[in-house]
Design a protein around this nucleic acid. Structure first.
Lengths: 341, 341
DNA sequence: CTGAAAGCGCTTACAG
DNA sequence: CTGAAAGCGCTTACAG
């Protein structure tokens, strides 16, 4: 590959001038610009990204780390990632995908992270990723519930999870449901704790006593098993219970699908016998199944966009004031899976 | 951040030695190793990835480019990406996600790609991404149908699309179906061309005449519209047709869901009135809906794994013989959405 | 608007 | 097993 010296020599200018033509950080005369560009084209020259990074100290990449474990994207993640990648490209940034946890610095061969900043999706308690980012002094923003873990000033973009749960409970309770089952996310997700608490508060607000069968947590397992979560919990809980659960709140669309499957096997109809509400699912897909699923629009793509904007502010790519915590709106999309008790 | 000179000075050794401790390319005495490591820990030192890359000429990252446009991942893409990221991490490689097309070199500020190789998902006719990769001399492997476009020796990982379509047609025809509708992928996808041809051949093989309503192509549009594709084509085709279509082959699970929706609105039952076969869908999700969907297991995760392995061979990270074209197996998973005519 | 020179933080022959 | 020095391919004050 041609390098800057080759272009400079053939164009009869200095390296600095060639650099300026490409970076546009200082003006160059039209004549020189055109000559340099022509030679560059002939030589198939393009500035070496790595060399540039070394001196500018910018990699023009941000890291996107998702929880470790045998993890698979949900449609929620899809749209979130879409928002991130598209918005990042607006500022000339690329996205480095890290699905497994940022590894321990166990092997000495580990080098620094070639990223200018990071977005941490679904922060967890004792999150190794956050500890390392902090230690390496890489600016980051978390998306999802952030608990205080000593890193006081963490920037975060999130939905208002308390409001979400209260809205859902108010909605279902207003329809006459008092025995609801909540298929929550995994216990290691900080979001699930906030949601459980809000769920309990919402019940109290309406003078409904909490019962053991009302809250379930997704086991932290592999893909296949997590697909069965909705089925297993629904099937076993409902078949062993004497009282009648009349509404189920499912953490995501997959959980909802598998819960529906269990309901069918148990002989229950949705929504005639049992209502089903999805917190975090793909709205289009939820619209296509039968019955179409009522749920909450969390705007995952918007979460991604706002996370990138916040990070760009922290990196001083974006000027002006900004808030360290950003809440993305959510609202109920009524469809056919919930009805009066 | 501390740099190699700081560590070298405090540890009383040369930079070269510090380098060796971290890269492990040359042995260092236990005493020195331990001292360097201790100092490094104290200073929070870690080798600068960019500086290392500049001299080794390796970024230890591969690019993953998906088709441009207003694109959203399907569950197929999810699992594929999973395979790629996990397998790449095995070799110490990270994955740079490019969702929009590798841009034209229109603005001169564009720098080289900081990747050692690339995986191109869903190659298209006149694929700009491939042209650029080729021009920048970045090794790449394509996943999905590759048509000859002057780049003769492109490495590729793929399913056997001809076999897939023949297997599906043989399966449905053996059940008595002769009037089948194929909701194919978008016309710009090379895979859809191969599948259409195979579909036509399969019909010929069984002496079934091709009719205009039998093949449809997903319009290249935004997310919302593509979700409607299955619905629209199914609804309009079936309501305007005098003869009876008895089986539908859907390109992916979303198309299948929305086709099912249309069938329900038209008063058809699956599979009693019309059978439904899904080519490329999330098997677990297809198992959870009612009726559970019969489809083809394309092993998307395995496609990702093999694509990375092939690329690692091309980058000489992996030693030994390898084939430039790799076919990943597929097989029919029988569930409840197809039945005898 | 342009050039000459230093420097970004590493690795790598070369020499011992 | 270790060190001294050159060099990876750019950008950036500094000077004009």
């Amino acid at each position: 590959m041609a390098k800057i010296d080759d272009v400079a020599r053939l164009a009869g200018v200095s390296k600095g001038t060639v650099s300026n033509v490409f970076s546009q950080k200082r003006p160059t005369s039209p004549k020189v610009t055109e000559r340099v560009l022509r030679i560059s084209r002939e030589l198939n020259y393009v500035p070496n990204h790595t060399a540039r990074s070394l001196v500018t100290k910018k990699t023009m990449a941000i890291g996107l780390t998702v929880p470790h474990g045998n993890f698979f994207f949900s449609t929620f993640h899809n749209q979130f990632i879409n928002g991130v990648v598209l918005e990042a490209s607006t500022y000339g940034y690329r996205v480095l995908l890290d699905m497994i946890a940022v590894e321990e610095v166990k092997t000495p061969s580990l080098a620094s992270y070639p990223i200018d900043g990071a977005i941490v999706l679904g922060p967890m308690l004792e999150d190794r990723r956050i500890q390392l980012l902090h230690q390496h002094q890489i600016p980051f923003v978390t998306v999802g519930q952030m608990m205080n873990q000593g890193i006081v000033d963490a920037s975060t973009v999130n939905n208002d999870n308390e409001k979400i749960i209260h809205d859902i409970c108010d909605y279902l309770i207003s329809m006459g449901h008092r025995n609801m089952m909540f298929l929550n996310a995994g216990q290691q997700m900080t979001v699930s704790m906030v949601r459980s608490e809000a769920f309990i508060h919402a019940l109290e607000k309406h003078q409904i006593g909490l019962q053991p069968h009302m809250i379930h947590y997704k086991p932290m397992v592999d893909y296949e098993e997590s697909m069965r979560y909705g089925y297993e919990e629904t099937y076993h809980t409902l078949s062993e219970l004497s009282e009648q659960v009349t509404a189920i709140i499912a953490d995501d669309d997959r959980t909802a699908f598998s819960a529906m499957h269990a309901l069918k096997d148990l002989g229950y109809r949705v929504p005639e016998d049992i209502s089903l509400f999805v917190i975090c699912g793909d709205l289009s897909m939820m619209h296509q199944v039968t019955p179409s699923l009522t749920g909450m629009d969390l705007q995952p793509s918007e979460l991604g966009v706002q996370a990138v904007r916040l990070l760009m502010h922290k990196l001083s790519v974006l000027e002006g004031e900004y808030r360290n915590h950003w809440i993305v709106d959510s609202r109920i999309i009524e469809r056919d899976s919930c009805s009066l008790k």
